[in-house]
Amino acid sequence: MGSGYEVFLEGDNLARLLGGLWVSVSIALAAMAFSLVLGVPVGILMTNRRRWVRAVLQGYLQAVRVLPPLVLLFVFYFDLTYAGVNLSGQAAAVIVFTLWGTAEMADLVRGAVTSIPRHQYESAQALGLTPVQVQASIVVPQSLRRLTPLAVNLVTRMVKTTSLVVLIGVVEVLKVGQQIIDANRFDYPSAALWVYGAVFALYFAACYPISKLAGYLERKWQTA
């Protein structure tokens, strides 16, 4: 029997592996979509004039940042059952990554908004623009340019971090890989090398283009 890459040709192993990757990528995309929607208003609130609003949001951001995502996953997946909330692995993952992504996204939004120098607001006002016009034609366009590359980068971080969901029992690419390795233990003794190598390559293939896009956007808009 073969001992190497032929393991991918057995049955629909390759398709299953790709399906597994899609499970983690879809969790990342769902969480990212929620994070975008929630992160923008939260980020704008972070620039609020009221001190307590900023303090509460900073507390949230710090809490989510200091704790490893894995710990949060365990809390939502295992701890919440004691409160009578039984979440599926996927649901727990989407919630945790949304919590995390919203905090990160909000911080990026805050950074982008506060990076616009004060004098631009004042000049715009002096030229007679209304507050809405200031936002629409000065703050938002510039913020978006600073924000987009960073947000795109957040997607790759999200995809990479979702690899943790294997530890709360979600059947994603690593789990499928383990299953393939175990099922072919006798026919393909060195399947582990190939399968985990393939998982490595698959993650790279998923994240590399997104990283490149982020880098491209950053360079393109830097001088503008």
């Binding site: 790759t156 990479k160 971090t161 690899s163 943790l164 294997v166 690593l174 890989g177 390795i181 582990a192 090398l193 190939w194 399968v195 985990y196 190598g197 998982v199 490595f200 993650y203 790279f204 994240c207 590399y208 990283s211």
Partner: peptide, 16 residues
């Protein structure tokens, strides 16, 4: 930078 630590560890520990 484009691969997660879990996957790197799996490859190192179980693949190599």
């Amino acid at each position: 930078r484009n691969t997660p630590l879990v996957v790197q560890l799996f490859f190192l520990y179980f693949g190599l």
